[in-house]
Computed example of a mutant assay.
Amino acid sequence: MLLELMLPQTCGGCGRLGPGWCRRCAESLAGPPVRARPRADPGVPCWALGRYRGPVRRAVVAAKEQGRRDLAVPLGRALARGLTGLRAAERTLVLVPAPTRRAAARRRGGDPVARVVRVAGSLLPDCRVAPILRMRRGVRDSVGLGADDRARNLRGRVAVARRRLPDVLFDPNAEVVLVDDVLTTGTTACESVRALAFAGIAVRAVLVTSVV
């Protein structure tokens, strides 16, 4: 209680004093996922929980750049709800977090996308989380880059980690879903799906928290 008085909690979506994710902001991610059609088509259906604006945008930024680890829980719950509506109940679900630069992960105290995916995976039955994608050296921060520059920045620089991969990734009855926080041009999704396909892993869909 004393700590809350010294460091009052604010909502990650609207900034008001109170819960870390208020009921009103939660409504912005309460609807069913919508189809997203990025400029760079990864070749599989893309879905988004919401638009990258308002409380959703502020929550994503807070989770990534302001150390708001507490937002992984409400964002993970929203992701789990969206996946429940999209998945085939009789199939095993495998969630693959989109890759992030190592420097960015160190600066943020971990990978916020992977953190949200782990929460979602823990809430879903018959679900596995496979953090197997990595970015090779030479990838720059994509903030401020246009579509063509983003494509050049990532081309050939997303890879599957060199280790024994879970057998479920190659199960034809499993649903492998690539998960990210923001879908901008679709470049990260394209390179990730390509890297997974090269490793023999078929991605069924891409699901993001928000789409620009």
Rank of each mutant, 00 (worst) to 15 (best):
V208P: 03
R16D: 11
A197V: 10
A114I: 03
G50Y: 07
A130K: 12
V113T: 15
R69Y: 02
L29W: 09
R137H: 07
R16G: 12
A120R: 01
V44A: 05
T184N: 06
C11D: 08
C11V: 06
G20N: 10
R77C: 07
R194V: 05
V117E: 02
V116G: 02
R58M: 11
R162H: 14
R194F: 04
V94R: 07
L93V: 11
L145N: 10
V158C: 15
V211T: 10
A48W: 08
G110I: 05
R118H: 14
L5R: 08
F170Q: 01
R162D: 14
N173K: 11
T92Y: 01
L93A: 10
C11L: 06
T184H: 06
T187K: 09
V176A: 13
R152V: 03
A88D: 13
R140D: 03
A159K: 09
V73K: 10
G13I: 07
V96M: 14
M6D: 00
V44T: 09
A189I: 10
G13T: 05
G186M: 08
G12T: 04
E27Y: 00
R102C: 04
L29N: 05
A161P: 05
L71M: 10
V117T: 06
M135G: 07
V117M: 04
R155A: 11
D141E: 09
R24T: 15
E27D: 03
V61L: 13
A30V: 02
W21K: 05
R68C: 03
R115K: 02
T187W: 14
D141N: 12
P99Y: 11
V143L: 01
R77A: 08
V179P: 03
Y52W: 14
T209M: 14
M6V: 15
T209L: 15
V117C: 05
V143Q: 00
S142E: 10
L7Y: 15
R118D: 13
G50H: 10
I201G: 02
R164C: 03
F198C: 00
P99I: 07
V168N: 09
L178R: 07
R69H: 09
E191L: 07
V206M: 10
V193I: 03
L165R: 04
S192G: 04
R106V: 07
P74I: 04
L75D: 01
P74W: 03
S122W: 02
A48M: 07
A59V: 02
R77S: 06
A174T: 09
C11H: 07
A36W: 07
V139G: 13
A80R: 04
L75K: 03
C22L: 11
G138Q: 11
G109K: 09
T100H: 10
L169R: 08
S192Q: 04
R128L: 12
